[in-house]
Write a protein that binds this DNA or RNA. Structure first.
Lengths: 234, 234
DNA sequence: CAACTGAATTATGAATTCATTATTCGAGTC
DNA sequence: GACTCGAATAATGAATTCATAATTCAGTTG
């Protein structure tokens, strides 16, 4: 007889859990770009030895989130303006593709789900609440990605997005840009409802260009121009 | 006094070297898809302990080349037909993008270089020499990628290509498909010389579709249809 | 003789230990 | 007083060790 509740799950290995945890620390800003990653402290914090943590760091390094210099430890990768210009065309291509594919597979239920997310997001926009706006915004893009049913595309896109998904970018978005972003989202929803892959593809690409502008702007304020290399540590 | 030859030299860490070595073993076919990766033997073979090897395996797993099942070790990821259908649209988008960007940056010298590679490749085609044809073919695509000057794009593309860059695919390409591929390469070269990004983009996408057909065909022969899961080991 | 049980073996996951390299800090020199 | 050199300290990289889970295989039972 089989176990009544097969209960797959949490067979996650330690290093796997750690990659997720450290990644979260980084994307949530607890570890700032350029900052050194203190192996010892993280080990104590999570109550694990260095071995699995180091494995996790290697993986994050291969994702580009972390930079590893031989015998000098790990640092959070600092995104330079030049790098941004590199990343965005690639994200644009993937985002466009995701829109195209999503339209071919998305169900009515999924569209309804996104419509609901969109409505809530607009509410937060009206209320000027940036934090929850950002979360819903992200949820919508995630839902579109999910609708592609393409694991490869999902993991590629997430890998790139992970390098710049900081809630704080949105903090200094101008009201005009913000309004434009909401309008773009309106168009995104409309294209989805028409299942217009080509159209959605184009809108998403434009939408991303807007985001690029926002992030570049944010970056400027972080590293005042003329200062080639950002501060190494705090 | 400084050493006469500053000799940067391979300050490469062991795990880094190992990732490359094991990756090579896989893409060159020494380790077949589905096959279990014997930690112990590889350690002896390379004369290292398990720690750096395991780190390497984690990285390869994050690239998708290797599959890690908790407490059950590592296996070379077997590419299923379904997965192929997933990977190709993404590669297509990246390949198209690389053509577009390459045309904006490529130098005359680089075009000349590619022209030379192309000429040699055509010679091998005429002679029916598949192995060297394959190498030059790969070199041309690599050169285009290089011309994008976009590290992000390069590493993304290579990551995907690594999952299906097996020289052996080409072994069962039909003469007709082979001739068509050569013709496509002719068009690729022409578009490059015109620096026609849009055109190149389209040709590369079509070219990749041809490759998809070749690989699918090859895969069919490896796993006779009706046999859902490939053999686990040999 | 097939199928199951459970001990022996082996492999994996993670902690610990060891060696080597960077970094810090202080003494000595110009 | 600033700089250099060098010892002490701390960190990293890799090997080893230890605990645990999976696999194998012999013995048993139906």
């Amino acid at each position: 007889m089989n176990a009544p509740e097969a209960e797959f799950i949490p067979r996650r290995s330690l290093h796997d859990e750690l990659t997720a945890r450290v990644r979260a620390l980084i994307t949530e800003g607890a570890l700032a770009p350029g900052e050194k990653i203190p192996e010892k402290e993280l080990c104590e914090r999570f109550g694990v030895s260095r071995t699995p943590l180091r494995e996790a760091l290697k993986v994050l390094a291969s994702e580009g989130i972390v930079t590893l210099r031989p015998n000098r430890g790990a640092r959070v990768s600092a995104l330079t303006a030049a790098e941004l210009e590199e990343v965005f065309p690639v994200m644009g291509a993937l985002e466009a593709l995701s829109g195209e594919i999503a339209c071919r597979h998305i169900s009515d239920a999924e569209i309804a789900e996104i419509r609901a997310l969109h409505a809530r997001m607009v509410e937060h926009w009206r209320a000027g609440e940036r934090e929850p706006y950002f979360r819903l915004n992200q949820a919508i893009h995630e839902a579109i990605l999910e609708a592609t049913r393409n694991e490869t595309l999902k993991s590629m896109y997430r890998g790139l997005a992970g390098r710049l998904m900081k809630a704080r970018y949105i903090a200094n978005m101008s009201p005009e840009r913000w309004a434009a972003a909401v309008a773009e989202h309106q168009a995104i929803l409309a294209a989805l409802e028409r299942r217009d892959g080509i159209g959605l593809s184009a809108i998403l690409k434009a939408h991303l260009a807007g985001k690029l502008a926002t992030v570049k702007d944010w970056l400027e304020r972080q590293e005042p121009p003329g200062n080639g290399a950002a501060r190494q540590a705090d």
